[in-house]
């Protein structure tokens, strides 16, 4: 099941050479309903990726609260935050970030090695099933030999391994040709909707954004449109 997101009074700034902080994000309020698919778009440097990092606990904001399912990420220790992320968030990157020395199946199973000394059979079966879902029959092929579209499909399967309540994708189609981008977009939406996971997508891909429940535009670290859950 997906988790709902509520952001209040969020501000993120980086130290600047001048000594004064460089404001990156300033979001008074932002809400995403459980299971909603939301796109975040905006020009380069507007803070889209930073927002994803803050929402997933990779980066801690200067002030403000990020609540997933009512739980404030700021209340978690580093260890608990890591555990929460690996069990709750599935990450899809623009550049896939597969591990080239591993097979497709082993790449999907990488998050399982964070918790287990030996990967349990049920997780292995789930990984195989996920690879079949994303249309990759040859699970023993080394990741380095996959096409870019196939790599992103493996990355998607990896993101879904722990049945996350939240899937976060950072420009998932930007590195792909049109055909592969369409396949990945289909898979991303269909799998997240099937799992009822909340989906946040940072993207410039209009064809992908058009298919989402809502799109928020970020400019200069501020969300221009006020959040309002769109009907699904």
């Amino acid at each position: 099941m997906g988790l709902d997101l509520e952001v209040r009074g969020l501000a993120l700034s980086y130290p600047a050479a001048s000594g004064a902080g460089l404001d990156v994000l300033d979001i008074p309020f932002f809400r995403v309903a459980a299971g909603e698919t939301v796109g975040i778009t905006g020009p380069s440097g507007s803070g889209k990726t930073s927002l994803l990092y803050v929402l997933t606990g990779i980066e801690r904001p200067r002030v403000g609260a990020v609540r997933w399912g009512g739980m404030d990420l700021a209340s978690l220790s580093q260890g608990r935050l890591d555990r929460w992320r690996r069990h709750t968030v599935g990450f899809v990157f623009q550049e896939f970030h597969l591990f080239p020395g591993l097979t497709a199946l082993d790449n999907v199973l990488v998050p399982a090695t964070f918790d287990h000394v030996a990967v349990p059979g049920w997780l292995r079966r789930r990984a195989v099933s996920l690879l079949a879902d994303v249309g990759l029959a040859d699970r023993g092929v080394p990741a380095a030999r996959l096409s870019r579209g196939e790599m992103q499909r493996v990355a998607l399967a990896r993101a879904l391994l722990s049945e996350p309540g939240v899937v976060v994708a950072d420009e998932p189609t930007a590195s792909l040709d049109a055909e592969s981008a369409a396949i990945v977009a289909d898979l991303l939406l269909s799998t997240c909707r099937a799992a009822e996971a909340t989906l946040l997508v940072v993207s410039h891909d209009e064809r992908l954004l058009d298919r989402l429940d809502a799109v928020r535009r970020l400019q200069g670290g501020r969300l221009i449109e006020q959040p309002s859950p769109a009907p699904r």
Partner: peptide, 16 residues
């Protein structure tokens, strides 16, 4: 660095 950071983004504890 980036490869290691990806592992962390995927939920790897620092001890991993």
């Amino acid at each position: 660095r980036r490869q290691l950071a990806v592992l962390r983004a995927l939920g790897a504890p620092r001890a991993y």
